[in-house]
Design a protein around this nucleic acid. Structure first.
Lengths: 253, 253
DNA sequence: TGTCGTTTACTGGCCTGACCAGTAACCCGG
DNA sequence: CCGGGTTACTGGTCAGGCCAGTAAACGACA
């Protein structure tokens, strides 16, 4: 016989749980309106302060949105990756998550996004990918535009064409975090222009591979490009930890 | 010239931002104590209700923990993936995410976890993996123990040995969601025992591959096993969407 | 009849002030 | 030096109130 530890639950938590339950069992769906705070206060038999704390939590976790003055009450929001992004960004910036881990994870996501995009993409998506790819080359004449962000948009189009939402969202998060890191670090102009050149070149090759459905090649190009971007800064230990993964994609190191 | 949309910021949000800022710039670190609500109320020049709403948000996002009666005030918590897990779980349970997408994503994570574990694992981790693998075989005599959960624990040990926290956390979430799906669906006893047998067999092969550092093989076994588990239920279209990925791991379909 | 401003009845945001149960440091008697 | 009671705090919750904002209902005017 085992005892389960008693965990005292605050009043506001009960409200949060009930609302989440009501949403997950379909009582409320995206776009529906919750009762007003004053109504909830009567329904749950608690004070308004307690209701408000519960609303704050639901709002912070991306479950509802509320706006002062709207007589229709708080609205149940459709899923948005905002919360996911924030917590993942926090994880990524954490000291305990090393650069290698982040890079490994990114290679993994981008590699497979390219792989899937090569077979799943529609023609419209291919066109969008190609357009974003050309945008990178244009960077050569635009010294003030952020490089990391532009490249990330290219990869974003690929992730979308993978037709896998989990992959897409997670990739967007990690890609966004790393793009920001790049733009914060990139200072030297000569360095920038050389990076623009190689990235634009890789992008064209990648677009071609995706166009022709050469999935493995697409993955190899994609991961190879990302890898080479960071290669200079890596220690030998870090390089070793990436080797197995790069090999699995058949990419050049 | 572009204008940025005005975004009204609530009082509590300002408090949240300031506290998060103070933590990210090192003013407060894990384990440190925030001032009491009454003190913060004086510091920020707001009412206690507002301070409390801010505290609730910080608590919900896993930044602080607070306990009634503690004269030392709320404690700044070390990062915990709890929030990330929750939002990830929400993503995985999203209706718009299809079975194939979830399975694709899982194959991706488990495949690379096995790949990395083969080269990065310590001896202790290998022992733990082997132990969890044998636990699966034991299931044959324990009809009441949940199959999906047990297999997930095995994979969990592998994910841990990959030495990549992002991979580990995401894998745990997706693995957990799918394990639950399995246990909800698995009813027939003859079906169960046959699945136990094949899974136990695959687990032994996987442990051996990881032990010997045969990374690619480990990934192939891992993904192959997971795939075969669901293969019967897949439509031909779903099978097609998985083919490219399975091929990239060199796994049998 | 249809349009457009105004009213109105709400909404959420925030404040004040209060009571309670819990905690841990402090202090004092042994 | 030690142990138990005291005390000064903590967070949890409540009641009631004011404000600015919103949108729907309304009514006047064309």
């Amino acid at each position: 016989m085992s005892f389960t530890p008693v965990q005292k639950i605050n009043a506001y938590e009960i409200i949060v749980d009930q609302v989440e339950q009501a949403i997950s069992d379909g009582t409320y769906g995206a776009g529906d309106r919750l009762p007003s705070e004053r109504q909830l206060m009567a329904d749950f038999g608690v004070s308004r302060a307690t209701v408000r704390e519960a609303m704050r939590v639901l709002q912070a976790t991306g479950v509802i949105e509320s706006r002062p003055g709207d007589p229709r009450g708080p609205v149940v929001t459709a899923f948005s990756p905002r919360v996911l992004e924030k917590s993942m960004a926090k994880l990524a910036q954490l000291d305990s998550v090393s650069r290698v881990e982040l890079l490994q994870f990114r290679l993994l996501l981008e590699g497979h996004a390219s792989l899937l995009a090569a077979t799943e993409r529609t023609d419209d998506e291919l066109a969008e990918i190609a357009r974003r790819g050309e945008d990178i080359a244009d960077l050569a004449d635009q010294p003030d535009v952020r490089f990391g962000e532009r490249v990330n948009r290219f990869h974003q189009a690929i992730r979308r064409a993978s037709h896998n939402q989990m992959l897409e969202i997670c990739g967007n998060v990690v890609g966004g975090v790393m793009a920001e890191m790049i733009d914060r670090r990139l200072t030297s102009e000569t360095d920038r222009s050389s990076r623009v050149r190689t990235s634009a070149h890789d992008a064209r090759a990648l677009v071609a591979a995706i166009r022709d459905g050469r999935a493995q090649e697409a993955a190899a190009i994609s991961t190879g490009n990302i890898y080479r971007y960071y290669a200079d800064d890596l220690s030998s230990e870090e390089t070793r930890r990436l080797a197995t993964m790069m090999e699995s994609y058949g990419a050049q190191m």
